[in-house]
């Protein structure tokens, strides 16, 4: 009982934070948090990787997870679309509420969940198919469009949103792997957008890219924010500062501190956060 109320309190506290944040960043609407994590614990076999994480991630904002490697930020991200299901030894406790539903319930089909939660990985992973086939993969398996014209529309719209249309419109039938690293990553983002998800998870999306490609992706993230709830894991603090409005700092499997990005970077409450941000460790 008490823990639940504590979590509620904490949730309220963060809702307040979000409000402050929004007023600062001049966002008109204050929406209810899109994703709410409540008491998430993750175990890999015997080893516990995450300890009681509670966090709200609002819509139309970019939330960044930072922290030293192995701190559990990617593990937490993979809890949101239940990607941890694919690892045999992994066990997740706690509630992950997406749009008011706890997705960790047995009755929730991860297929359904993942159709509305897109994900982009560290290494660009286009399928060994044509650019076109890469983009229509999601709509095809979910049966969102049947006709060629519908699919064509989806491809164009998705690639436009990902800022790749102009570069590839003449060679849609070439393999996705023939693109450069940055283009591949944008292709992957277009592939995720094609099923029109509400949330996009990004797991260090720029760590394999050069600075120019990184800049493009960051620009893209900022644009996409208008329509999606974006959650990004990054090892680069400057990237977190550039693209995110809310930042959460993880350390040793615990969520140390979360709040508006500015606050975290300028006035952290926890000394560990301060140490990390100032480069004492990590």
């Amino acid at each position: 009982m008490t823990t639940t109320s504590m979590q509620l309190n904490r949730g309220l506290e963060e809702a307040v934070l979000t409000t402050q944040l929004d007023s600062k960043t001049n966002i008109q609407t204050i929406e209810a948090p899109k994703v709410q994590a409540q008491g998430i614990n993750v175990f890999y076999g015997e080893k516990q990787a995450l300890f009681d994480v509670n966090l709200d991630m609002p819509s139309k904002l970019v939330t960044a997870f930072i922290g030293p490697s192995g701190c559990g930020k990617s593990t937490f991200l993979r809890c949101i679309n239940r990607m941890n299901d694919t690892i045999d030894t992994c066990r997740v406790d706690g509630k992950m509420i997406v749009d008011g539903t706890d997705v960790n319930q047995k009755s929730i089909d991860p297929v359904m969940l993942r159709a509305s939660v897109g994900m982009v990985f560290q290494k660009p992973n286009p399928f060994p198919k044509s650019i076109y086939e890469n983009v229509v993969y999601g709509p095809r398996i979910h049966g969102l469009a049947q006709k060629k014209s519908e699919l064509d529309n989806i491809v164009e719209a998705s690639l436009r949103k990902a800022g790749l249309w102009e570069e590839v419109k003449d060679r849609l039938d070439q393999p996705g792997t023939s693109l450069s690293g940055g283009q591949q990553q944008r292709l992957v983002i277009a592939r995720a957008i094609a099923v029109d998800p509400e949330i996009i998870l990004m797991d260090e999306p720029c760590s394999a890219l050069d600075p120019i490609a990184t800049a493009k992706i960051e620009e893209l993230i900022d644009e996409l924010r208008q329509n999606y709830c974006i959650i990004i894991v990054t090892h680069s603090m400057s990237q977190a500062a550039r693209v995110s409005q809310q930042t959460a700092f993880f350390h040793m499997g615990k969520l140390v501190e979360a709040g508006p990005t500015e606050t975290i970077f300028t006035n952290p409450r926890d000394t560990r956060t301060q140490d990390y941000i100032t480069g004492r460790f990590g």
Binding site: M83, V111, R114, G118, N125, F127, Y137, G138, I141, A192
Partner: peptide, 13 residues
């Protein structure tokens, strides 16, 4: 594995 992850993340069975 990244190809599998990419597909699962799109909601493929």
């Amino acid at each position: 594995q990244t190809l599998r992850d990419g597909s699962y993340a799109l909601g493929a069975t």
